[in-house]
Amino acid sequence: MLAKVKVPPEFKCNPFFFAQDVIVFQPPLLRGETHQQPAFIYDIVAKEEELPEAPWNSLEDCIPPLFIEWKNQEKILHEQFSIRKVTNAKEVITEWSGRFLSALFWINGRSIQGLTALEADIQKLTYKPVNTSERLLFLLKKPGMYHSFVQLSELYKELQKQYAIKRIRLKK
């Protein structure tokens, strides 16, 4: 059975949930299935209630599957762009940009508190790709463009490296 949650005002930011009032998702929110749920759903639900399986508390269960699923989606988008038959690039890039943002914050051990002060919040993070804020702003302005896809692909590659760095530092 599907569940609904109201989108808080601090998450209503273009292009995410600009005119949307609710998000529909499939409960329960399990940390190993983060890539199968809508972007930001864990962060939004965590504002209302305690999440027993919060992804930012168990990175090993949620980050690697997210990266694997992005690789699959990246191949599909690349093929579509190469034959110039991209029908839903804007929606897919926007969705995966949201998932990137969640993963970025989760790798830093926290949830996203909102999207309205995103640039300032990103600056405070320890593990992040170079110029993350500027690059994200670029791709979110025109998410259907090929250059936005390339930028998002590079951000994911760099985030994967930052995740590896964090894992190495935690093992020391």
Rank of each mutant, 00 (worst) to 15 (best):
L77K: 00
E74M: 02
E134G: 15
K161D: 08
P52H: 09
I122R: 10
L59N: 02
L101M: 15
L104G: 05
K124W: 04
K6D: 06
N57T: 02
I63D: 04
A19T: 15
N14I: 12
L115E: 05
R110G: 13
D61E: 15
P64G: 07
G144Q: 11
F17K: 04
S82E: 12
W96F: 05
Q80Y: 01
H78I: 06
E158S: 06
L104E: 06
E95M: 13
A46S: 14
N72Y: 04
M1D: 08
T116H: 02
K128H: 09
P52R: 13
A54F: 02
P129Q: 07
N57M: 03
Q80P: 01
P129N: 08
Q37H: 12
Q162Y: 02
A39N: 13
P143M: 09
K166V: 02
Q162N: 11
I107Y: 02
P55E: 07
I107T: 10
I165Q: 12
R84P: 00
P55V: 05
I44T: 05
H35Q: 15
S111F: 12
S102I: 00
D121E: 15
I83V: 14
D121F: 09
I165D: 06
E119Y: 11
F149C: 07
E10T: 09
V7I: 11
E50C: 03
V45A: 01
K85N: 14
F138W: 00
K142H: 06
V24K: 10
A120N: 07
G144A: 05
R31S: 15
V24S: 03
A46C: 07
F18C: 12
I165G: 04
S97L: 05
L59F: 08
C62V: 07
L136T: 03
K161S: 06
F11A: 00
L51P: 00
K12R: 15
L101S: 09
